[in-house]
Design a protein around this nucleic acid. Structure first.
Lengths: 335, 335
DNA sequence: TGGTACGATGGAACCAGTTCCAACAGACGA
DNA sequence: TCGTCTGTTGGAACTGGTTCCATCGTACCA
């Protein structure tokens, strides 16, 4: 464990540079010399110090990921895509979980530093213009996953189209009184999430296209979570004229809606249709109709874009659109 | 971004060592000098290079975690405990996801190196004696979470007791024909998981204590997963004399059992009782009776033990036992 | 008044690689 | 025969901190 590159050089009777060249697979070493050095390396059981390499080369061989609520199934699946991609490279994955606004801001400010990480992935949290400027200034390549921001690169899905898709599905099944359960607006704003907001926009857009006047009483917002969604959905179902269908901003929230229906003895899908969003693992189990988005791929593709930025010229700050599709299952039916 | 400690020293008209002392909050600096240095630091907008610090101090300020199938809800929850604990320190969390045996072996061999990480957490994967020896040789402090190995420190739950607890619960409800759905023995062996095996042992132990002869046909093993468990459970339920209750080695597998029951029109809990293990988030939603274990705490406590090892003398290779308890819900009833 | 102890300070040496330039040998063409 | 070019090679300089030892001034004590 104590052998250094100098020990190797001495023992192999070559220069420091030559050993370094062998370690880095430089072609500027004669086969004979290379072999001699390799022999000595094996003999001394030498492994170059990663930490010294990082220091000398100025690279950390690290990719940082800032993920909000990384226990949410959708986020975990994105992380899996990221991890799998990185595991095939020699970059390590450093994870920052964000569950409070303070931590969001701290992470976005402190993590992107050249001496801490070579590249940064940000999931779902959209940096604000001022933050974009700071990020750019650090010189650390950043790729956004599941969100967009002016002047940044990333992958995303069209959540407006997704919200529209879910709502259209219900309208075409004959529903007219359609509710929406989404994230609390304060939370969305504090974290600067974009998806719940856009899904709501898609919901409204679909209603409008079909000439349905949106009923504000049908739109409920609360902290993201099954329990909170359950409470909101119960309110909706207890209205004098309850909706016959509900669009949820995520599968987790859709589960809350299903719970509320169960609480009140409302039959699914006979008396209430429910559409979720994300198509997480459990959705199939529950027979939940939902909007599928490529979660794993979003992570993997994000890493690919980051790699391009790491190993070449600055990548165009373009956003790549991933496809979505509606998966009809057992929680939706004709009105 | 270009300022170095030497620039600061020059500008503040002090020595290198003094600046270093200020940075590290050493008491060996007079208040006046400290203030002067701090002013210059602010003026030059200087931040010490993390990478250089790491190199010079020989620390990586990194804790690595090797986690098998880190998308499984139980693993994610442990990771959350780990992340939250680390976020309060200045250690970063580097995650290695293990989904194949090859990667297990590679990670266990390559990750624990002093120049890569300061400490290592291993979730659920028990190192074999030979691996324990190698780990020890590296000098990297290691803490096991959810498993044990001779000569290593860690936190765990008594899975034998847990399997026993689940089975007793069923026996006391009057069940005698009790099935078990667990992980494939090859998979368990290849990864060297301990929990499924121990839960089976607890199941057998409980049967024996009550004088029930275990029926080998009632014990099924398959790759861990909902779908596989569903197939296994279907086999069990289609036996000439099917079990009236099933113990699953995890909540995920219990969900597969519930699906199988649904497939075959078997009423839960009227005709079949089901007990899971882990008490993951979704268990409550499903009304699944299960054995609760402190997932979050296991991660957090693992980090605490690791910190003790990092900042002091070698910790005793002791295993800390965390409590478990049975949570009776709606999937179990009297026979 | 001299000796001692201690707080404060400066800076050389060090960590273990990478990078880059000078130098050299041998092949080859003029 | 000499210059040139190319493929190899050696090693100084560099990355930016930490550590530790020598030094200095001053307060305190005998």
């Amino acid at each position: 464990m104590g052998a250094t590159i100098r020990d190797v050089a001495r023992a192999a009777n070559v220069g420091l540079g030559t050993v370094s060249r062998v370690l880095n697979n430089s072609p500027l070493v004669s086969p004979a010399t290379r072999q001699r050095v390799l022999n000595v390396i094996a003999e001394l059981n030498y492994t170059p110090s990663q930490i010294a390499r990082n220091f000398a080369s100025g690279k950390t061989l690290t990719v940082a990921t800032i993920a909000p609520f990384f226990t949410r199934p959708s986020v975990v699946e994105r992380l899996r895509g990221i991890e799998l991609m990185l595991s095939a490279s020699n970059y390590n994955l450093v994870v920052f979980n964000v569950e409070t606004v303070e931590r969001r801001d701290v992470c976005l400010r402190d993590v992107p530093r050249r001496d801490r990480t070579d590249g940064l992935l940000v999931i779902s949290l959209s940096p604000r213009p001022q933050e974009v400027a700071m990020l750019r200034q650090t010189g650390v390549p950043v790729v956004l996953i599941d969100t967009v921001a002016d002047g940044m690169a990333g992958v995303y899905v069209d959540d407006v189209a997704g919200g529209d898709l879910a709502t259209c599905h219900l309208i075409e099944l004959g529903h007219r009184r359609i509710g929406f359960v989404g994230d609390s607006l304060e939370e969305v704003q504090a974290f600067n999430f974009t998806s719940s907001r856009n899904r709501l926009r898609g919901y409204l857009q679909a209603l409008e296209r079909y000439g349905i006047v949106p009923n504000p009483a049908y739109q409920r917002h609360g902290i993201h979570g099954r329990y909170e969604a359950r409470v909101l959905a119960r309110e909706l179902l207890q209205l004098a004229e309850p909706p016959t269908a509900i669009v949820a901003a995520s599968d987790t929230q859709a589960m809350g809606v299903l719970e509320a229906a169960r609480d009140l003895g409302v039959e699914i899908p006979a008396s209430l249709s429910v559409v979720g969003y994300d198509d997480i693992d459990i959705a199939e189990y529950l027979g939940l109709t939902t909007v599928h988005q490529p979660l794993f791929d979003s992570g993997a593709r994000g890493v690919e874009i980051l790699f391009a930025a790491l190993s070449g010229e600055p990548v165009a700050p373009a956003h790549e659109l991933l496809p979505i599709k509606l998966i009809p299952r057992a929680t939706t039916a004709a009105c």
